[in-house]
């Protein structure tokens, strides 16, 4: 029994280690390649660089990685705030109403969750461009928020359904109106749900590509995903610079993820519910 147990363990460890390696190697290779010279990467794609150098990072940074990072950060920040507040308010009203119309509204919002951006790309682009909202950081926050609202509303709706009614009733007896109940009782106690929703949407918006590609065409406004795609055009054969640009884009979010992995995992696993 003992030796068999150890053998099974070795096999299981082997399996997950192999997969972990498969996941890690491309990322490790990206970092290594970014500190090579163009010549080194061409002659020996697998080898380590003769000397650790950062000039590829300088070249990549000079294209405007800083701007891309900044754009992504503020667009993500404001989109997430809008999504959380708007969805929270809507979910609260919907979760506390047994009115038939309200249930219909909730179903409509749920249906909205099923609509993929790709399927409405053409009219969405036309509308935004007609409204003169192309190339505006503020303007892209709105469609981002709109596409984040359905899922977040579903998430909050479930949370509010489980929220103890008696607390709200106590607050009514204490003199709170509905808005006061929401902002003084419900919101302060929704921390976990808010964190989950915020992380989920932040990851999604930080990485969103197609809307950003269509709506933010000025170099000064581009976000990270669009910006790094531009790298491949900018540095046709400068692979180290491309890999350096990718490292700049990828490593910070990976670092944040590793530090807060528990919350990320919990948040994204919520999709299964």
């Amino acid at each position: 029994m003992g030796s068999r147990f150890r053998f099974v363990n070795v096999v299981l460890y082997g399996a997950v280690s192999l997969w972990s390696l498969f996941v890690l190697l491309p990322l490790v290779w990206m970092v290594i390649a970014s500190s090579k010279t163009r010549r080194e990467i061409f002659l020996d794609p697998l080898g380590l660089p003769a000397q650790f150098r950062l000039d590829a990072f300088e070249r990549a940074w000079s294209v405007g990685m800083g701007t891309f990072l900044f754009n992504s950060a503020i667009i993500t920040f404001f989109s997430v705030i809008v999504i959380v507040v708007v969805s929270g308010m809507a979910a609260y009203v919907l979760a506390r109403s047994d009115n038939k119309w309200m249930q219909l509204v909730y179903l409509m919002i749920v249906a909205g969750f099923a609509v993929p951006v790709q399927a409405v790309l053409v009219p969405l682009f036309q509308m935004v461009s007609e409204a003169g909202m192309l190339n505006s950081r503020a303007a892209i926050v709105l469609p981002y928020a709109a596409y984040g609202v359905p899922f977040t509303t579903i998430l909050f709706y479930a949370f509010f359904l489980d929220f103890p009614r008696e607390l709200e009733e106590a607050a009514r007896l204490d003199g709170c109106g509905r808005l006061q109940i929401f902002f003084r009782i419900i919101l302060p106690l929704s921390g976990p749900a808010i964190a989950s929703a915020a992380i989920f949407q932040a990851v999604f918006i930080w990485n969103e590509f197609v809307l950003a590609l269509l709506m933010l065409t000025k170099p000064a406004l581009k976000t990270l995903p669009v910006g790094i795609l531009q790298l491949t055009g900018e540095f046709t054969a400068d692979w180290p610079a491309i890999m350096a640009g990718l490292s700049i884009a990828v490593l910070p979010i990976l670092l944040i993820f590793i530090l807060a992995q528990k919350y990320f995992v919990r948040s994204l696993a919520g999709l299964g519910k």
């Binding site: 103890p164 008696e166 607390l167 009733e169 106590a170 009782i185 106690l189």
Partner: peptide, 11 residues
């Protein structure tokens, strides 16, 4: 009113 589950505001 005094509620069955106390209904104290946890925060």
């Amino acid at each position: 009113m005094v509620f069955q589950n106390y209904a104290l505001y946890p925060h």
